Simulated assay, not measured.
Amino acid sequence: MLRAGFLLFVLAFLAAPLSGLASGGGGWMALSRQDWDSIATSLLGGAAAMAVIILVGTPLAFYLARARGRLAVLAEAVVLMPMLMPTLALGILLAVVYGPAAPLGRAFSALGVTLTNTPAAFLLATIYAALPTYVIAARGALAQVPVEYEELARTLGDTPRAARLRVTLPLARRGLSAALSLAWVRALGEFGIILIVAYYPAGMPVQLWTDVQDLGLQAVFPLVAVFLLVTLPVPLWLGLRARMA
């Protein structure tokens, strides 16, 4: 009885924020034009970031899942550092590296790409926020597929690349889907990096912060609801699906 009461208390504690959303903070207001713009910015920027993350993150996850030795350990440390670093600190460091006064920033500017307070800067910040999460989660999913399956496919005539595409990726698809959904949540929810690097155009987190400062808590509930609607369902469904499998 005591155990059940303790579990109920913890679950009620975790669910308490949802009651605030249900109440609407005392009332709901319509989404403003700026809110709609922030939704578009987050969704379009997040989708573009996911495409880049899949393309560059999956090969890196394969490497980390299969490689051994000091170089692999060093590579994993490099992947982990942005994920473990405080986001405001990472945003400041990115501004130093990619800002208009930095050599790398000037090089991109010469190509017509400005990496501060532009859609390109938003994409850059989102990739830095979400790529490590995807790589680490995807590496775990790929590592669970025995390497012997790939070797068997190679004995049947597949190249190493074909064996990974035909055997490993399909077997790891559920874990890779979970990795991508976590990266999606991380991308859309990032605030600290984007606050420094890409305050404009404002994504949903920055717009929520602006609305709270300018209009108060009551004004943000419609945007909070949209924010949760585009981030929570897929990871929640995948987590429950894995639990029931």
Rank of each mutant, 00 (worst) to 15 (best):
L169E: 07
S32M: 11
F122Q: 10
G239I: 00
L188A: 03
L240T: 03
P170M: 14
L228A: 14
V167F: 09
G189N: 06
L94I: 13
V234D: 07
A129N: 03
S177N: 03
I196T: 05
A137D: 01
L104M: 09
L165W: 06
L55D: 12
A77P: 03
T210H: 06
G26S: 10
A49K: 10
D214G: 00
P82Y: 07
R3D: 00
L14T: 05
L124R: 08
V206I: 14
L8C: 06
L156F: 11
G5E: 12
A47C: 07
Y128L: 08
F227I: 08
A61T: 04
L8N: 00
P222G: 12
A242V: 02
I194V: 15
G46L: 07
A75M: 13
I193G: 04
S32Q: 14
A107Y: 12
P86A: 13
A77S: 06
A110D: 06
I194F: 05
G46I: 09
A12L: 15
G112V: 10
D211I: 00
S19F: 15
A179H: 05
L124Q: 02
V185F: 07
A4C: 01
R33G: 14
L232G: 03
T133S: 12
G20P: 04
P100L: 02
P82C: 10
A47I: 12
A130E: 04
L142V: 13
A110Y: 11
V220Q: 01
L238E: 13
M81H: 08
G175T: 05
E190C: 00
A49Y: 05
F62Y: 11
I54R: 05
D37R: 05
Y63C: 09
L124D: 03
D37I: 05
A225E: 03
L238Y: 10
P170V: 04
F191Y: 15
I127N: 00
G157L: 08
W184D: 01
Y199A: 14
T159R: 12
A107M: 15
L142G: 01
Y200F: 14
L238G: 11
A172E: 01
M81E: 12
M244R: 14
I92H: 09
Y63E: 07
V97H: 02
A125W: 04
R70C: 04
L176K: 02
A245Q: 11
Q144H: 04
A138W: 00
A95M: 07
A138Y: 00
R161S: 15
A162H: 01
R243H: 09
A4Q: 08
V10W: 15
L55F: 14
I193E: 08
I136K: 01
D35Y: 11
R166V: 06
Q34L: 05
